[in-house]
Design a binder for these strands. Sequence first.
DNA 1: ACTTCTTGAGAAAGCGTAATCTATAGTATC
DNA 2: GATACTATAGATTACGCTTTCTCAAGAAGT
Lengths: 359, 359
Amino acid sequence: MDIREIAKRAKVSTATVSRTINRVPSVDPQLAKRVWKVVEELGYYPNTQARALVSGKSRIFGLIVSEITNPFFPEIVQSFEDIAVQHNYEILLTSTVHDPKRMELAVRRMIERRVDGVAILTFGMEDSLIEDLRFRKVPLVFVDVGPHVAGVSNIRIDYQHGIRQAVQHLAALRHLRIAFVTGPLHLKSALARKAAFEGAMQEIGLEIPPERIVVGDHKMEGGMQALVQLAGLRDRPTAILCSNDMTAIGVMREAYEYGIVIPRDLSVVGFDDIRLSQFTTPPLTTVQMSQTLLAEYAFKALRSEVERVATSPSGSEYELLTNLVLRGSTALAPSGDIAMKSSKITLLRRAPGESTKNR
Amino acid sequence: MDIREIAKRAKVSTATVSRTINRVPSVDPQLAKRVWKVVEELGYYPNTQARALVSGKSRIFGLIVSEITNPFFPEIVQSFEDIAVQHNYEILLTSTVHDPKRMELAVRRMIERRVDGVAILTFGMEDSLIEDLRFRKVPLVFVDVGPHVAGVSNIRIDYQHGIRQAVQHLAALRHLRIAFVTGPLHLKSALARKAAFEGAMQEIGLEIPPERIVVGDHKMEGGMQALVQLAGLRDRPTAILCSNDMTAIGVMREAYEYGIVIPRDLSVVGFDDIRLSQFTTPPLTTVQMSQTLLAEYAFKALRSEVERVATSPSGSEYELLTNLVLRGSTALAPSGDIAMKSSKITLLRRAPGESTKNR
DNA sequence: ACTTCTTGAGAAAGCGTAATCTATAGTATC
DNA sequence: GATACTATAGATTACGCTTTCTCAAGAAGT
C-alpha cells in the first residue's frame, strides 16, 4: 500500500495526498478530510525511506556512546530517545566498547544511513573518523573535546562547580586529609576532574601529598584497589572524592570488607550521580552531572544545526553545570582520638564467609 | 556523490558499479578493480535509503525493551547490537517505559521505517499493536508470550530448570523455611517463576505457607519491603528466593539495615544474573538467564524469518535454559538454636547514621 | 468584456540504487 | 561457415515519495 493507492481511493492525485499528510495549508479542507479518511481506513503509514530519499533528510541522529552497559549511559540513551521521538527523529545507537574497529564501523554505518547528525558521547575517538564525518558535513556534537569549527557543537562541563562544592562540603565537615581517586589518565574528562579537585583544594589552602591521589579506572575494581592503597597510608585520609560513582561504589564496597564504617570512619563522595548511587548503603553523596540535561543539550545542538539550512553554520557551545547532592556517605570527620582509633583497625581483609561484622 | 559519479569516473555503467559493490560474480575482475579504486578514492558509501527502497529490505530490526535503564536490558541491547552489526543490520531501539502511548508510537515508528522484523523483549504489550505488525507481515519474536502463528517466533524460557537447582541447593544447605518474593503478578514471566518455585518445593516435599510468598515489584524497593515482611514472621524463613536480582539486592540491602547477616543468618538467591549481582556484598547467588543467548536467539529468529523468502513461513521456537550460579549469598542454614537466636534480633530499624554494625 | 491575479490541484520529474531487460562480442556446435 | 549459446556490460525501469511545474477556474481590476 502506497501513496498512489490512497490517491486512487480518495480520487485525488498523489500530490494532494502528499500535501495533505504533510499538512500543507493550501489543501482544501474538504479534500483533506476525504484523504485522511482513506488514510485511516487503510492504516497507511508513509515510507520513511522514500521520504528520506527525496527530501535528503533521514531524520535519524547517530548516538555514539562508550558502553551501554556502563550505568552512566542508559539514562542518557533514554532521555535522548525521548526527545528524539518527540521530534520525529530516530536514533541510531552504537556502543563502541572502546574498540577502534567498532568505532570505525559505527561511523560507516552512520554515513551509509545518512544520519542528519551525530552525538559523540564517548571518551576518546580517532580524529580520522571525525574527519570522515566532517568531510560529509554531518553536524556533530561532543562533550568537552570537540574542535572549535563550524558545524561542530560542544557541551562544556563545568566540573569545577560541583567539585568545589564537594571539597568545601568536606572541609566544612572538618576533613583535612582528603584523597582523590582519578579515572584513567588518558581521558580528558578524568583529567579535568582531577584538575578541578586540585584547584578546589588549593583554593582553601589544603595540601595534597602525592600519595593521596591514586589512579583508578572509572570502574568498581579501581575503586576497590584505591581503597586498599589509601587505607594503608600512614596518614589515612578521612574522606575520599572519586572521579565517578562506580569508583566510589568500589571504595565503599572494599571499605566494608575492611570494617571501615562509612560515613563514621570515612566519608566518600562520587561523581556523575548515576541512579544506582541512590541505592548504595549508605546512599552516596555525589556530584550530579545531569544525564537528562546532557542528552537534551546534545539533541538541541544537533537539531539547531540541521534546521539552520543555509544560514550561518556555526557550532554552538553549551554549558552543563555540576552540583553536589548530599546523601548519606559523608559526615563529620572523626575527631582526633577517634581518628587514631580508626587508624588502628586491622588491615586484614575479612575472610569471605565470616563477612559483615566489625568487631 | 552517488553511484553515477562513480560510474562516470570508472567509465562504466551504474549497473556495473552496483554489481561490483554487491559482489555479483559476473563482473570482470579487471573492471571490478577499476571500480573499487574509484570507490576508495572518493570514499563512496552507498545510500542505504535508496537501497532499501528498491530492494524492499531495510536491513533494520526493531528492538522493543521495557526500560533501558533497568540493568537487565543494556546487556541484551549490547549483544543484539553486536550481532546485528556483524550481519549488516541496524537496530531501531525503543524503550517503552511501560507506557502504552509510547508502545503505540514505537510500533508506528517501526512500521514507518519499514523494519524487517521486531524483537519484543518487553513484559506485556497490547494485542492491538501486535496485530498492527502482524497485519503488515512483519516477522516478530517474543519471549514466552508470543502467539503460536506463522511468522511469530518464541523464545521459551525454562524457568523450572534453574529454579529447581536453586531450591535444591538451598535444601541441601538444610534450609527448610524458604520464602519467595514474586514480581508483579500481572507479568507472565513473574507468574512462571513463582510456579516454578512452587513446583520445585513440592517436588521435595517442602510446604509453603502462604505468608512465605510475598509480592514484590521486580525493583529494589519491592525487595526491601519484602524483607521487612518476612523478617517479621513468627517462623522467619532462613532463605529467600527472589523473582529477579533487583529484588534480591533490595532484600540484601534491607537485611543489612536490620543487622541480618547474609549468608550467615539468611541465604538469598536472585534470578537473572545481571552483571551487578557479581558486585554486591556478598556477591549474589542467582539463577542465570543468559542475556547474550537471549539476544542471540532473538536475532537468529528474526533473521531466519527474513531470509526464508517464499518458503514455509513458520515461526520457530527456541528454548533458553536457566542455571544456578553459586556465589556468596547462600550458606548452611543456621542450626536450630542459632536460628532461635537470630529470630530474636530486634526488629528495630537501625538509625541512619549509626549504620553497619551488628552488635 | 478583457486581461491579470490568485487559489488549488493534477502531471511529471527526480531522489540513488537494484533488478530486469537488451545488446554485443566471443565460443562452442554441427 | 552459419547458428546457437554464453558471458559480460550497458540501458532502462521501478521503488514510494516530495517538489516543481503547469494548468484550469474563479476573483478582481481596468
